[in-house]
Design a protein around this nucleic acid. Structure first.
Length: 643
DNA sequence: GAGTTTGAAACT
DNA sequence: CAGTTTCAAACTC
């Protein structure tokens, strides 16, 4: 069996093996960290490359550069464009391939515009800007992919992701062979090609013949087209950055460089997004917090994989206007929103720290904790959390992770699973999500943001050591006070003033959550993620029943803490297993974002949400985490609808 | 905006 | 592991 191609393929995906990761200077050295199994990561990046090569033969794409340049010029006849494409393209051109070209062109145009207008200085991301064709393709693929992905909803295909990434690559490095490969990959997904063509292609162009072929996919193509447009609108900023700098954050002023581990994928997402506001905000709120990016440094590989998945999931979000925009008017609100986002994981990009003594190299620093580099908006002093000090950052991060592998993991996790695992707790705690480690509040009554549970928009659980818990999202004792009225009544003791403020706060949180939840569309990817998470969790559980939060995750549903990506992981876990678990933990957050469950958890009404029950399917997932992972990874591509 | 409060993170 | 200190966000005025 080992000799069989299938086995070989699986091995190639295996996280255990050192995957040929594309060097991404921007990210913290995920690999360096005691990162959890690369199981998840390998499939994404590796597969993408592999596929790109694989498709290469299939899909020769015209020279992207040419297209880009020409794109602005609409006057050119289709024939001319086709002719150019042919000339440039050395490979055989499939009709499908060409079809995409038009879109690419559009992107390019927008990007150029954005670049002109956009302030690159804002892009903190230290990502070493590689403008060279070759280098760009290698470094940024992941990040760029994120950007594109965000705008898309329907089909989270790997091919698609690759294709998306290819587009970016093209922008940055038209000449790069890698970029071509990517383009080819795009072709791999039948649905995409047609969709792409539809928009730009015109009759008479070279593509025409293929367009006919595409007809079957007409509907799909249309959808994609719409998606793409969204990406352009919202993501363009990021793209532009990408073109200029591979890794620049997209969030504009708020954007940050992503640190590889936890926030890495978040950062990527952020980068991709034009404004943190737009996509990230919505996502964060709706998703888990603090979904975060959840991938932390420790579980670098996993995180990467997750990140990609996340990106796909997020594809849906981009279109909608984000909360940030709504809140932008007031700095204060903006800040809150950003924080929320941050916690959610993606929002992190929007975080701004104000560190004075920690040099932004400790978890005190929100940016550092979020796995992102500090950016302009930060008011930190003697900041070392910058790309320039990447080595220091990585070393510090590593050190922290060595002390606590979960230090960078999301702190909030969905409790639905918890219920399943720890039935008692679930019944006690109304909220669907819980803080992984629990809070330790003494004076705030878990009614202020001092409380991580409250901040994360989750109720307190038995894991909390808080005193006088009155968490509006769910008390430690299990009573849910979500209902504002109920809360008020209970807190009669508190001054009306305080109460009012509190209510306001809660209301904001609720609203935010609501928005998030509403904004989050369930995507196939999310489902897939959940499965992965579940599998991972299950594994973890089997391995370490001790970990409460792990157990919780075992439920399979992860909550994205809408506001926090605060899963705190138990420090004890240090072995590989632990790492794997970490990765699994993180996974949940990501999933939670996309998962519909979050909505329930978030329900502003404060009504108790019936704990989600594991489906038969979920139960079926249970099995060796590793095994599941390996199996699941290969399936990723399959998820993508190629029909 | 300065000062205070708070609780997590870090340290012992 | 518990106690203490440090730190920066959250909060108050």
């Amino acid at each position: 069996m080992q000799d069989s191609p299938v086995f070989n393929y699986i091995n190639s995906l295996s996280p255990i093996r050192p995957v040929k990761s594309i060097p991404n200077p921007h990210q913290f050295s995920t690999l360096n960290f005691t990162s959890p199994p690369s199981v998840f990561t390998s499939p994404h990046l590796t597969s993408s490359h592999k596929e790109s090569r694989f498709f290469k033969t299939h899909h020769p794409s015209p020279d992207p550069t040419i297209l880009v340049q020409e794109s602005p010029d609409d006057s050119k006849s289709n024939e001319e464009a086709a002719a150019e494409a042919d000339a440039t393209t050395e490979f055989n051109i499939d009709a499908s391939t060409e079809m995409e070209q038009p879109q690419i062109v559009k992107y390019d145009v927008k990007e150029t515009n954005l670049d002109e207008t956009t302030d690159l200085s804002l892009v903190p991301y230290a990502s070493p800007p590689r403008k060279e064709n070759g280098s760009a393709s290698e470094d940024a693929p992941g990040m760029e992919m994120y950007d594109n992905v965000q705008g898309k909803n329907e089909t989270p295909d790997w091919d698609r992701l690759i294709a998306d990434s290819s587009e970016f690559l093209i922008f940055s490095s038209p000449n790069d062979s890698e970029a071509f490969r990517c383009l080819m990959m795009q072709r791999a997904s039948p649905s995409q090609a047609p969709s792409v063509m539809m928009p730009t292609m015109q009759p008479g162009s070279i593509n025409e013949p293929e367009s006919s072929n595409a007809s079957p996919y007409g509907a799909v193509s249309v959808l994609h087209r719409g998606i793409r447009r969204r990406c352009l609108d919202f993501e363009m900023p990021g793209n532009k950055q990408t073109s200029s700098e591979n890794n620049t954050a997209a969030c504009g002023s708020s954007s940050r460089c992503v640190v590889p581990s936890i926030g890495l994928h978040l950062n990527a997402l952020l980068m991709s997004t034009k404004d943190c506001k737009t996509n990230n905000t919505t996502h964060d709120y709706s998703c888990s917090e603090k979904y975060q990016v959840g991938l932390q440094g420790s579980s670098s590989t996993l995180q990467e994989t997750l990140d990609q998945t996340e990106t796909e999931t997020r594809e849906d979000v981009p279109v909608e206007p984000t909360l940030e925009e709504l809140h932008l008017s007031s700095p204060k609100k903006k800040r809150q929103v950003c924080l929320v986002k941050l916690e959610a994981g993606e929002g992190e990009s929007c975080k701004r720290c104000n560190c004075k003594k920690s040099k932004c190299l400790k978890l005190y620093c929100e940016c550092f904790a979020a796995g992102v580099y500090c950016i302009e908006p930060c008011s930190c002093i003697d900041c070392f959390n910058k790309p320039i000090h990447e080595d220091t950052v990585l070393a510090t991060r590593k050190q922290i992770e060595s002390r606590n592998p979960l230090a960078f993991a999301p702190k909030v996790i969905k409790s639905s699973d918890l219920v399943l695992e720890t039935g008692d707790d679930a019944s006690k705690t109304p909220a669907s999500a819980r803080h992984k480690r629990g809070c330790n509040c003494k004076k705030s009554n878990c009614l202020k943001k001092y409380c991580e549970c409250f901040q994360g928009g989750v109720g307190c659980s038995i894991n909390c050591r808080c005193e006088g818990c009155k968490n509006a999202f769910g008390r430690k004792d299990g009573s849910a006070i979500v209902d504002m009225e109920a809360e008020q009544e209970e807190e009669n003791e508190t001054s009306g003033k305080n109460r009012r403020a509190k209510n306001q706060e809660n209301t904001e949180v609720y609203l935010m959550r609501k928005e998030e939840s509403s904004a989050l569309p369930a995507t196939p990817m999310s489902v897939y993620r959940q499965q992965l998470v579940n599998s991972c969790c299950l594994n973890n559980n089997t391995k370490k029943p001790d970990n409460n939060w792990l157990t919780v995750f075992g439920g399979g549903s992860s909550s994205s803490g809408m506001f926090n990506s605060q899963y705190t992981r138990k420090p004890e876990m240090k072995s590989l297993e632990t790492v794997a678990e970490d990765g699994a933990e993180e996974m949940p957050e990501i999933l939670s974002h996309s998962s519909i469950d979050n909505v329930n958890a978030v329900s502003p009404n404060g009504k108790r949400v019936s704990p989600p029950h594991l489906d038969s399917s979920s139960s079926g997932r249970r099995g060796g985490g590793r095994k599941l992972i390996l199996q699941s990874i290969p399936t990723f591509p399959s998820l993508t609808p190629q029909h």
